[in-house]
């Protein structure tokens, strides 16, 4: 049975980017708000990987923090449905393996942190050792400090900590982007393997399309705080419909065809402080029309199970 365990409904988060009060009064500058996330809706199904892809600054990390409950949305809500009426437990694996572990705590203590307080010391120790072995380290590592490990090892320790809570949902915020390519593969294989063995659910954030293709079951493309396209990952990779998705896929370096003629994204990403009117993608879009410059396209469902926010793409299935 497929069960949705987290559902984002019209999620929005604005940040106040105004100058300090006194300066604002002196220069008569208006208040400034940045809409980091705007009208984002998606469902995460149990046992699958939902990936969000986008350029830096598009709001994908903010979405994760909202889903985790580390931040509160200014609009909409996150429905944390959980498994069979239980409250949803989330854990997170962070991008930076240095900051994600307390440097003064032995890793065993860090891994044991999410465990229930009712557990006794012996049971904790046994579980921590087991988790260390699960992520490919040895039980003797419990007594070491984070600085004694490499970045990839630290990331695996962070994964062990996330597993310790037996969380329903693991939020993976670019878990491999700070790692070497060879180590990336190791960590991704581990995550994939754990998902198969333990039936884990992932919300996976990345800007790396190759990584996403390996991990994702469903994929959402985010651009300047909005979802532009969402659907089954393979479908999106096979037949990207939104012009942004197409350009994004086009930028992926291809080992088999290294010197192909790539369409560069024409101009820089606009400032989130000063978004273009209408579809925010229109200044970079080859298909932009007058309509695109005036009206924000809504995310609508298409017959092939994907959703898209674009005026230019029609509903006939492209292949």
């Amino acid at each position: 049975m497929v069960a949705v365990i987290v559902s984002a409904r019209d999620l929005g988060r604005s940040f106040d980017a105004s100058a300090p009060l006194i300066q604002r009064l002196l220069t008569r500058a208006p208040r400034l708000t940045v809409r980091a996330v705007d009208g984002v809706s998606f469902d995460v199904t149990e046992g699958t990987t939902f990936a969000i892809v986008g350029e830096s600054g598009c709001g994908k990390s903010t979405v994760t923090r909202l889903v985790a409950g580390l931040d509160t949305p200014t609009d909409g809500e996150v429905q944390r449905l959980g498994r069979m009426g239980q409250p949803l437990r989330t854990q997170m694996v962070f991008q930076d393996p240095v900051g994600s572990l307390n440097p003064r705590w032995r890793v065993g203590r860090s891994i044991a942190e999410p465990m229930p307080l009712s557990m006794d010391a012996a049971a904790r120790f046994a579980r921590v050792s087991e988790l260390l072995e699960t992520v490919g380290l040895v039980a003797a590592d419990v007594a070491k400090f984070p600085h004694e490990f490499s970045g990839g090892q630290r990331q695996r320790i962070a994964i062990a900590r996330a597993l310790a809570a037996e969380a329903d949902l693991l939020l993976l915020d670019e878990p491999t982007s700070a790692l070497d390519v060879s180590v990336q593969a190791q960590v991704l294989n581990l995550l994939k393997d754990l998902q198969e063995r333990l039936g884990l659910t992932y919300l996976f954030i990345s800007h790396n399309l190759a990584v996403v293709r390996f991990m994702a079951d469903r994929l959402a493309i985010m651009y300047l705080g909005r979802l532009v396209e969402e659907g089954p990952a393979e479908r999106l990779f096979q037949a990207p419909a939104h012009p942004y998705t197409r350009q994004l896929l086009d930028t992926v370096p291809d080992v088999a065809n290294p010197r192909r003629n790539r369409e560069p994204l024409a101009i820089d990403i606009p400032s989130p402080l000063n978004l273009p009117p209408g579809c925010t993608f229109h200044p970079r879009c080859p298909l932009a029309t007058d309509l695109c410059r005036r009206v924000v396209p809504e995310l609508r469902s298409r017959p092939d199970g994907t959703r898209i926010a674009c005026h230019a793409v029609t509903d006939e299935v492209v292949s």
Binding site: F94, Q95, G99, P114
Partner: peptide
């Protein structure tokens, strides 16, 4: 830092 966020997620 992220380890503080991790602790918050663990209901510390």
């Amino acid at each position: 830092k992220d380890y503080t966020a991790a602790a918050r997620l663990s209901q510390v």
